[in-house]
Design a protein around this nucleic acid. Structure first.
Lengths: 209, 209
DNA sequence: TAACCACGGGTCATATACTGACTACAAGTC
DNA sequence: GACTTGTAGTCAGTATATGACCCGTGGTTA
């Protein structure tokens, strides 16, 4: 039936509407102060409908996080290009660029991931959700780790703890992205954000040689 | 309830989807050959849903016509500006311009009105629908009639049958609009459509003086 | 001419989606 | 420790959508 496709489309749209509303309310109020009623109201549905699409308030949070991370992972995997042969430095540059892309194209997800991962996140969600989020995050970092390990094997990077090095790169880039959101800081630094971003990547790469 | 507004919006959207589908199918197949099943399919709903929103196949046609005419009447009334004082010629120019606007902004309605009003329309619909459509059409023409009568009263137009003059203007403009849809004819004439349109209006007005 | 059949307008019992008043309970307040 | 408040989560009731079906019409064949 032609109808089938349309109905599924509409269902997915409603789901997304609810997720978007939840994201906004969580960002504005924080998870604890946010109420399911206000999410429902923002999404223009009844509370019952929210529970028709998501089993609990926490699962709204989990879906936001996991879908955001899934999107990021998509960007990273494509950048890494596992089935192409690229040298380690090239891979790192591409991964860094992908992260910037994610930041620019999915600003909501990015902001949300950043906002959630501070404060008492561990106590907020079930151990299960916590584990899933942790695993997805690690999976992201792993693309970077893999590129660095490749560089060590190839002899172009000096020997070091790859995970630690990956974390350094990640933290560095976060710092630059954070700066992008603050015009004042940007002006203080006096460099356009993308030059700064590129410089940051190159600096870390040089440090790894 | 916040929900209320959204639900009414969605209902109206569905209604419009069905109307649009009906318009397309009627134009492609003609009223008789068109089937309600194919309209439902195009609108991605079941036949039952079509009958939930419209009571019959004919009422689909009637709504398309009457809503199209209502839109046109809106343009005309605004152009005539009953509560402002304008001279007759200015009113005619504005009415002509409004008709062009309608043609450009509501091409679907325009095409549909043109297409339906030939062939065996009278036998196709109930006398009731026929009367309503006729009345709405006359109401449109009446704005033109009124402007011409005003010109006669003011002494700027020579005495004539206002209705007949209005029909002349209308037919003239239809001719130009028809031409607009045919690039070849346009090229033959060698004048840009809006110059032609303006000329046509001015010619008729001059003829009325 | 009569028997048949395919088509398509219109119906309605059923299925799906949505609602919001309600319950239960946790966290504060006196 | 009783009492209030606020909110996560439930469910009986309602609104909306579906498509198998009914039935008349107009065309076809014997």
């Amino acid at each position: 039936m032609t109808t089938r496709a349309r109905r599924e489309r509409e269902k997915e749209e409603r789901r997304q509407t609810i997720l978007r509303a939840a994201r906004e309310v969580f960002l504005e109020e924080g998870f604890h102060r946010a109420t399911v009623d206000s999410i429902a109201e923002r999404a223009e549905v009844s509370k019952g409908t929210v529970y028709l699409y998501f089993e609990s308030k926490e699962s709204l949070l989990a879906h936001l996080l996991l879908e955001g991370l899934a999107a990021l992972l998509g960007y990273l995997e494509e950048a890494y290009a596992p089935d192409r042969t690229l040298d380690a430095e090239e891979r790192l540059r591409r991964l860094g660029w992908a992260y910037l892309q994610f930041f620019q194209r999915e600003p909501h997800y990015f902001r949300f991931l950043m906002a959630v991962d501070r404060g008492r996140f561990r106590e907020t969600v079930s151990p299960q959700t916590y584990r899933q989020v942790l695993e997805a995050s690690l999976e992201g970092l792993n693309w970077v780790v893999r590129a660095i390990e490749q560089g060590i094997e190839e002899g172009s990077f000096h020997c070091c703890d790859a995970r630690q090095a990956a974390a350094t790169l990640w933290a560095t880039l976060n710092g630059v992205l954070e700066l992008m959101a603050h015009p004042l800081r940007q002006e203080m630094v006096g460099v356009t954000p993308d030059v700064l971003y590129r410089t940051a990547i190159e600096t870390v790469i040089r440090g790894l040689r």
